[in-house]
Nucleic acid binder design. Structure first.
Lengths: 258, 258
DNA sequence: GCAATGGTTTGATATATGTCAAGATTCATG
DNA sequence: CATGAATCTTGACATATATCAAACCATTGC
C-alpha cells in the first residue's frame, strides 16, 4: 500500500489532455494500490497526497463479462477507476430500447452519471474479466476540499466527460455510418496509444451489436462498414481483432462526402 | 447587493431535480444580485453563504441575438449563470459541419465544457437579448472548498449535464424524427414549468435549422414533423409560437412504432 | 407601404441505412 | 472432437430522412 517509486522521481506530464504514451511501469509507480490513471497521472500530487488518495480507495473484486458494476437506479456511493479490463455503460428506455453510451477501459473513471440524483442513470457492465478500484465519493469530496489540485482534477474529469459526450452528439447527429466507425476506431487507437499499447493492432472487446448501439447504427451496418474499410485497404479485421493499416486514410475518410 | 428577503423565510425545495414551479418573486429573493437559480435554489445555503457567493459574482453586460458569450478555443475563466434570455452552444468540426449541442435558458449554467482543457470546446451564442452573471471559476472552486454544500451542488450540476447529454445520445442514436421533436417539445415544456412559466404555450427562440441541428435532422424534416403534430391535433404552431394541446398524446408518441 | 431578406412550408425524388433472411464463422460445452 | 449457440457477414428489398426546388410568409429597413 505504500508508494514505492514516487512520482517525483519522474516528472509527470502537464495537466490536460493525455496524449503521450505512458509506459506500464510508470503506471505502476504512479499509484500504489490501484491504477488511478486518470486521477493520479496528469495531476501534480505529492507523494503524501497520493498516499491520502490511496487511503480512501479500496481494490474491489473481479468481474467477468456480463457482470454489472452497478445498475440503473441503484444508489450512488462511489466512482470506480478501472484497474483491469473494460466496461460499457448503457441507458435503458422504458419501451425496451437501450443504447450504449460509452466504453471504458483501463485507467478510466466510471460512475460520473450518478452524482446529480444520488442514483445511477445507467448500467455499467463488464465486457471482459475486469477489476476496479472503488473511490467512495464523499471521501473523495472531503479530500478534494483539502487538496485543490485534486479538486481541480476532479472537475477536469467531469468536464472531459461532458466534452466527450458532445463529440458523440456531433457524431450521432451529423456523420454518416462509415465516418462514425472511422471516428470510433481512431478514438480507440488514441486511447490504446495513451496507455503504451499498440495503436494499430488491438482486440475489440465488444460485439458488432454493441458498437452499433454506441454509434447509432444497426449491427449489419457496422459489419458492412468494417468490410468496406477492409476492401479499401484501410484496415484488416477478423471478427474482433483489428489492425489499422492506413491511419491517415482513415482520418481523411472523416468529412469526405460519399 | 444585499439579500433582502433571505431564503430562510421560505424553505427551499430539496436538492435534486427541480420539478416544481417556482414563482419569479421567489427567484428574486433567492439571490440578491443575480439569478443563480441552478446554483442557489436547490441547495441549502445560509444567507451568509449566499452573500459569499454573491460577492464573487458579477452581473455582466447584455447580449443581443447572435452575440458570442464565448468562442471555441477561447480561454476559460468563468461559468455563466443566465440571468435573462437564452443561448445556444454549438461545436464546429474542421470540415465546416457544425452542430448545436444545447439550448440554455434563464437560470441555467453555461460553460461547463471548458474546464478540462482550460479552453472552450464550443461556441455560446445568444438567441435573443440576454444577460448573464459571471462566476469566476477559480473563486467558485475556492469557495466550494469552504462550503461543502456548494461543492456538492457544483458536482451535481456537472453530473446533470452528463446525464442530459446521455439522454440526447439516446435520442440521436435511436429515435425517429418525430419522436425527437416530441422529446424536445416536452423537455422545453418541463423547463418552462420549472420556472413558473406556461408549460403549454411558449415562443421558440431558435430557428427550424437550429432545432434540426440539435436533433440531428434537416430543417425540412423538423418542419414536416411540426406540421404532422399540428394535423394530428397534438400541438398548434405558427412559426415560432407553439401551443402544446395534448401533452399525454405527445408523450405517448415517444416509443410508438411508425 | 413596398421591396428585400431570411425563415418556413410543402412537394417530388434520391439515397443511406434499416429490415429480413440465409449462410458462414467463431466460441463454448460436453 | 462434435454439437449447438452466438455472433458475424452478405444479399435483396423497404423505408425514413435527405436533397433539391418552388412557393409562401414574416420581419426589417427604406
Amino acid at each position: 500500500m505504500t508508494n514505492k517509486g514516487g512520482i517525483s522521481a519522474s516528472p509527470l506530464p502537464k495537466a490536460g489532455n493525455v496524449q503521450q504514451p505512458v509506459s506500464n511501469s510508470r503506471l505502476k509507480i504512479a499509484c500504489s494500490n490501484c491504477n488511478l490513471r486518470e486521477l493520479c497521472l496528469p495531476v501534480n500530487l505529492s507523494m503524501g497526497e497520493i498516499r491520502q488518495l490511496d487511503a480512501i480507495s479500496h481494490l474491489k473484486r473481479s468481474y467477468v463479462r456480463g457482470d454489472y458494476l452497478y445498475r440503473s437506479g441503484g444508489k450512488f456511493q462511489s466512482l470506480y477507476a478501472i484497474y483491469r479490463g473494460s466496461f460499457k455503460t448503457q441507458v435503458l428506455h422504458e419501451d425496451g430500447r437501450e443504447q450504449v453510451t460509452g466504453f471504458q477501459m483501463i485507467g478510466e473513471i466510471i460512475g460520473l452519471d450518478a452524482i446529480c440524483t444520488e442514483h445511477h442513470a445507467c448500467d455499467a457492465v463488464a465486457l471482459e474479466n475486469s477489476e476496479v478500484c472503488e473511490l467512495p465519493f464523499n471521501k473523495l469530496e472531503a479530500l478534494s476540499r483539502e487538496l485543490p489540485s485534486l479538486q481541480r482534477h476532479l472537475h477536469k474529469i467531469m468536464s472531459r466527460e461532458i466534452v466527450r459526450d458532445q463529440g458523440i452528439m456531433l457524431l450521432l447527429g451529423s456523420m454518416r455510418a462509415e465516418e462514425r466507425l472511422a471516428v470510433f476506431l481512431l478514438s480507440l487507437s488514441q486511447r490504446f496509444a495513451a496507455r503504451g499499447l499498440s495503436p494499430t493492432q488491438f482486440q475489440l472487446r465488444m460485439s458488432r451489436q454493441e458498437i452499433g448501439s454506441y454509434l447509432g447504427l444497426k449491427l449489419e451496418t457496422v459489419s458492412r462498414a468494417f468490410s468496406h474499410f477492409q476492401n479499401s485497404g484501410l484496415i484488416s479485421v477478423h471478427t474482433r481483432s483489428v489492425e489499422l493499416i492506413d491511419l491517415p486514410g482513415l482520418r481523411a475518410f472523416i468529412g469526405k462526402q460519399h
